[in-house]
Design a protein around this nucleic acid. Structure first.
Lengths: 222, 222
DNA sequence: CCAACATTCCAAAACTATTTGGAATGCGCG
DNA sequence: CGCGCATTCCAAATAGTTTTGGAATGTTGG
């Protein structure tokens, strides 16, 4: 057994993972899957890509063991193969944000700094939510909420928000979140809430960022 | 500004990082750089690759901002662009080890389970080292030790170990470490120490694994 | 069993990455 | 200055990835 061969072997296995993560499309798909399980068709719809293409990318993710698939009737249901996958995604994004100016600039342009909740740590937010001093609002589709959500969060999917405004308290500040820093649903939710006179802000975190920082989340399903 | 374009832009930036990590050679180089700064020539020597090839890979890493270079006379000195890079590497390897059976098998074949220290947590090891109940031994080249090492660790590079055996205590168990789980220097050190009658075991951790788990390390240089 | 459907397989075209050889650059020392 | 050295640039050969169209597979419900 000579050394160069061994080394190449080990690093090749690790590279299987990073290769799988090296395409923007696969990162997007994996981020969706990190929110909960999905069918190929729903992933295609949400990512805006052709089903065949999505299927090909899912195959690559499957071969790297980052996702697993199961059959449910005529559908294939995919999910991330563990919580560590979401955490890896979050770590990767953090490194990208730290070192790539381009990414920071693009994000800054995109996200209204005004809408961003500032000066409150995750732990502080958790306490305030527990005491009812803020309302933590999950604006993702309800299935994703059921799969996992921040502690004390209430679910109102973005497309139902307008119809359900009267169920929100006028006197408690609202903190909206969605899938993570690149997801703009919470941004839109805050915009809507503010025009209707609510005090609202968004946080960048989603469930996976929360988990990556060692905090726990709530689940409604096994 | 329409959404599909924006998304592609953001994920493309993140993919720049994972693309840079998607080649076994670059992973190896980055792991070496995560131990401390190195010249192109020393990286080529340690990785066993051609200088031109190493230079090309370093360019890719530089473009992803994972490493930075500075000129020192006729040499270019490269280093990882932050501690988060080493932590990302450790996270990536953890995910690979968790999900890829091939990697676990290759590692198990390679590493004598006997030599592995078991049942002791990082924190316990730290306490025992502080009280002098074990000797933590860093067998990497001395420059890497000076750049960063585990708390209370003593430096004896692998190729000097045989000559310096008499400086080691016969009655205190020795725990050797090197660059991380894929580095076999500590394995060889343990083999040598055991044939000479010392009680010795290795740990998989290196400096970056230590940091990735939120523990601190010691440094001798700015 | 057949029709409808979700998904995957296969092959071709377009594109991108890796490796190598040879030439060029940039620095320091005599 | 100019020689030697470390490194990078350039270009060509090779190998791999992404995307698309069309055909095949497997499953449910009639």
């Amino acid at each position: 057994m000579n050394k160069p061969q061994i080394k190449a072997l080990l690093y090749e296995q690790v590279a299987r993972i990073s290769k799988a993560l090296s395409s923007p499309k696969r990162l997007e798909l994996l981020e969706l899957l990190a929110q909960g399980e999905k069918t190929v068709e729903s992933l295609a719809r949400e990512s805006g890509d052709d089903v065949k293409l999505v299927s090909a990318h899912l195959k690559a993710l499957r071969e790297a063991r980052l996702v697993v698939a199961r059959r449910a009737g005529r559908f294939m249901v995919y999910r991330a193969s563990g919580a560590d996958v979401g955490a890896l995604l979050a770590t990767l994004r953090d490194v990208a944000e730290t070192h790539l100016v381009e990414l920071r600039l693009a994000l800054a342009q995109l996200i209204d700094a005004e809408a961003q909740l500032t000066g409150v740590s995750r732990e502080q937010l958790l306490e305030q939510a527990q005491r009812g001093e803020v309302l933590v609002l999950d604006v993702r589709p309800e299935t994703e909420y059921r799969s996992a959500h921040l502690p004390h969060a209430r679910s109102i999917p973005l497309d139902e928000l307008e119809d359900r405004l009267e169920t929100l308290p006028a006197d408690v500040p609202i903190v909206a979140y969605c899938r993570g820093p690149f997801c703009l649903m919470s941004e839109q939710a805050v915009a809507l809430l503010r025009t209707r006179g609510f005090r609202a802000a968004r946080i960048e975190d989603g469930v996976n960022e929360w988990l990556a920082h060692g905090l726990s989340v709530e689940r409604l399903e096994a």
